[in-house]
Design a protein around this nucleic acid. Structure first.
Lengths: 221, 221
DNA sequence: AACCAATCTACGGTTTCCCGTAAGGATCCA
DNA sequence: TGGATCCTTACGGGAAACCGTAGATTGGTT
């Protein structure tokens, strides 16, 4: 089983229970930090000491406080960690259940496992640890359901730019200027209209307000 | 200190750490359940056995699973619990930090304390327990900040009806019909426009899309 | 180089929304 | 009762968004 594990989790109570859960798997003394910046520092130090970690267990959302951080959240932490130690295995442990986010984690950041903070998370954590130790990917079962039911449109960079501008209060007719300045390709007003129509049609909406609400719910913006 | 505590929390790991935290306060054996329905049953049984609980510690959001529940979430559980045992003290322990929600909990449901799941939640839990035991209210400090920065408009029933209709895709010009059918008083189209303008002006917005996004963020809808 | 296909853009008519003004109703007080 | 104030509603001009069509541009192929 893993010998050196680092836990990045800001909730004190979660941190406590992660340790007891790992103790059940006879993992000796996992190390833990409450801030993302500390996590990266410890990873770097472990490399320097030639005792690199085997596994990083991290949350996604970290609450801000007086202690200003360079690395704000789990996603950025994973990117930074992979850069300094590509071999590091990563298990994400979070309440997040938006399929868009989780797909991105596996496909782009190449994480090794995802356990949702939910009913039987302690059990699933143990399963995840053994799976990952055997070079397998793991996804907690409560999420598999949530991902299937999703027949949604997949949002392009353009889509997200348009929606973000709307949420920022830019009038639709001014969005072309913004897109040109940021070198986002189709920038004509008609293209924006067409794109909005497509999104609304696929999702069965008739008004922008519905689309905004949907994107908020799905964590797209 | 409290003698009989009931914990309602669906996350296995949180449940574990709550128990260890309470153990630090030399609270003997807190009882715990993973479902809201079970919580209410246990409360009723404890009354029947003439050994009522002193305190209920509960989360707000419970994940749905195959085990269908009559009581869906923490808010409903608190209402039901207060009905069968008005004297029961209640401490909410949740990640939620929307001021609208928390204000409602204190003002309408008369909870005794609120601790946000965040950096030092274990410490704050202990502070909350002693405060509540001494008949004081408790609010974890990370929340006091979040509530102050809020110079927001307070949304009336009308406001929420209008916004909900927009999110449902009703064209603005058709909303008067909906309001009349539901006996919501000012129902003229001009009143709706005026109300939307007021909300947007107070919050510094120019477009409906911004307002929708804001309401989603604040948990108003 | 020329052609085709696909996409992007520009344009005009229609609908909806926005916003200011004014008329209609209700409430309160002298 | 009369009048003053506030709130609601109705109306109309102008702006923005919606929608279909036609022209322009791009990228790839022969």
């Amino acid at each position: 089983m893993f010998k050196r594990i680092l836990i990045a989790e800001d909730q004190e109570t979660q941190n406590i229970s992660l340790q007891t859960t790992l103790a059940d798997l006879s993992i000796k003394k996992p190390e833990y930090v409450y801030y993302c910046d500390d996590a990266l520092t410890w990873i770097k130090n472990s490399i320097r000491a030639e005792q690199p970690y085997d596994l990083l267990v991290t949350d996604l959302s970290f609450v801000e406080d007086h202690n200003k951080q360079r690395i704000a959240g789990g996603v950025e932490l994973i990117q930074a960690a992979k850069k300094v130690q590509p071999s590091l295995k990563i298990l994400v442990f979070s309440v997040e259940n938006k399929s868009a986010v989780i797909d991105m984690l596996f496909k782009e950041l190449h994480i090794d496992g995802y356990v949702r903070k939910a009913r039987h998370d302690a059990q699933y954590l143990k399963l995840a640890l053994t799976a990952i130790y055997n070079d397998k990917k793991y996804l907690s079962p409560d999420l598999k359901l949530a991902r299937k039911e999703n027949n949604s449109h997949d949002f392009t960079e353009l889509d997200i730019a348009i929606i973000s501008q709307l949420v920022d209060g830019t009038p639709q007719k001014n969005i072309p200027y913004y897109l040109q300045e940021n070198n986002i390709k189709p920038s004509g007003l008609s293209s924006i209209e067409k794109r909005l129509n497509l999104m609304k049609e696929v999702l069965g909406f008739s008004k922008n307000e519905q689309l905004i609400a949907y994107c908020k719910d799905m964590g797209i913006i």
